[in-house]
C-alpha cells in the first residue's frame, strides 16, 4: 500500500509541478478557537509545514465540531475557512490533514458536493486528505457516553458533553451515515479524492516508559476500564476497524513511526515518534 502511495506521490509531483500547494489542519471533536496551540500544538503544525514550498500556505481550522458533521457550525464553518484559504492564497493543490472526527467532517464535504456551493471548489482543489485516526466507523466509547445519559435525558436534563458529535460517532449511527450520506466505505462509491488513513494501533501507558509521556501522559488506571470497551487493536479511543472503515490505509503507526512506536489517540495529533516528519515529507 505504501508503494501505491509513493507512486501517487511521484505522479502528483510531476503533474503538479506548477501547483500551489497548501495544507489545512482540521481538528477533531470539540469547539476550538485556538487549535494551533490547544489541539495540535505549534510544534506539530510548524514541523509539518516545513515540507511546503511556501511555508506560509497553511491554515489551522477553528470550528465547532461538537455539532453534527453537516451543521453550519461544523462542515459549514470548515467550508468557509477552507474557501477563504484556497481563494486568498490561490491554493490549487490542497492537502487536508484531519484528526479523529475531523475526518468525518471533511468526508461530509467530499461526499455531499451539492450540499453547499462552496464544496465543489474545495474538492476540485484538493489533492487528498490525510486522515489521522479518523472515527469513520464510530466508537463504542461514544455509545457509552450517550448511554450514561439516557436516564438523565428521560428526566429532561441533558448534560453538555453528550453533544451531537458524540451522538453521531456511535457505531450504529456511523453505520447509517456511512450507508447513506457518506462515501468511501466498503460497498459504497469512492470519495472524489483519496482519503488516506493513518491508524493508531495501541496505547503504551507505563509510567516507567518515557515514550508514554509524548503528547501528555495517558491515564493508566482509567485505560484499564475504557480498553475493555475496545478491540485489542485500538488507539485507546477508536478501534483500528473504525479508523480503517473509510478510504485507503496509508499506514498503521508501527509500520512507519520511529522505533515502531504505536500512536495513541492523543499522540497522533502531536509531534510524536516522527509522525510530523512523515507528514512533512508528503505534503
Amino acid at each position: 500500500m505504501k508503494k501505491i502511495l509513493w507512486g501517487f506521490i511521484l505522479c502528483t509531483v510531476c503533474a503538479l509541478a506548477k501547483a500551489n500547494t497548501g495544507v489545512a489542519f482540521v481538528h477533531g471533536t470539540g469547539e476550538q478557537s485556538d487549535a494551533f496551540n490547544d489541539y495540535w500544538t505549534g510544534d506539530f503544525v510548524n514541523s509539518v509545514r516545513q515540507g511546503l514550498p511556501n511555508q506560509s500556505n497553511f491554515v489551522v481550522i477553528n470550528c465547532d465540531f461538537t455539532q453534527f458533521m453537516w451543521d453550519d457550525r461544523a462542515a459549514g464553518c470548515l467550508a468557509g475557512q477552507l474557501t477563504n484559504f484556497v481563494n486568498s492564497r490561490n491554493i490549487t493543490d490542497l492537502v487536508v490533514i484531519t484528526h479523529s472526527n475531523g475526518g468525518n467532517v471533511i468526508r461530509w464535504i467530499m461526499s455531499n458536493p451539492t450540499f453547499d456551493s462552496r464544496y465543489p471548489n474545495i474538492i476540485n482543489r484538493m489533492r487528498w486528505a490525510y486522515a489521522i485516526a479518523p472515527s469513520s466507523g464510530g466508537t463504542p466509547l461514544a455509545e457509552q457516553v450517550i448511554a450514561g445519559n439516557v436516564f438523565e435525558q428521560s428526566l429532561g436534563f441533558i448534560l453538555g458533553f453528550a453533544n451531537d458529535a458524540v451522538r453521531q460517532q456511535q457505531p450504529d449511527w456511523m453505520a447509517f451515515y456511512n450507508s447513506t450520506w457518506l462515501l468511501g466505505t466498503a460497498g459504497r462509491p469512492a470519495l472524489p479524492r483519496r482519503f488516506w488513513n493513518i491508524v493508531g494501533t495501541d496505547v503504551e501507558s507505563s509510567p516507567f516508559d518515557p515514550d508514554s509521556y509524548c503528547g501528555g501522559y495517558t491515564e493508566t488506571l482509567a485505560l484499564e476500564v475504557t480498553q475493555e470497551f475496545l478491540d485489542s487493536c485500538s488507539d485507546g479511543f477508536l478501534n483500528c476497524s473504525s479508523q480503517e472503515a473509510a478510504g485507503t490505509l496509508w499506514f498503521r503507526d508501527v509500520q512507519a513511526t520511529n522505533g515502531r512506536e504505536p500512536l495513541n489517540h492523543n499522540q497522533s495529533r502531536r509531534p510524536c515518534f516522527g509522525l510530523d516528519v512523515i507528514l512533512r515529507n508528503n505534503v
Partner: peptide, 30 residues
C-alpha cells in the same frame, strides 16, 4: 437544515472495478 437556493452540480469518474452495494449496512445487527 439547508435552505440554500443555489443549484449545484458535481460529477466524479468512478473506478471501473468499484463494487457498489446499496444494501450494505442496511440490516444493522447490534
Amino acid at each position: 437544515i439547508n435552505k440554500s437556493k443555489e443549484r449545484v452540480t458535481f460529477s466524479q469518474v468512478l473506478s471501473a472495478d468499484a463494487t457498489i452495494n446499496t444494501a450494505v449496512n442496511q440490516r444493522f445487527v447490534k
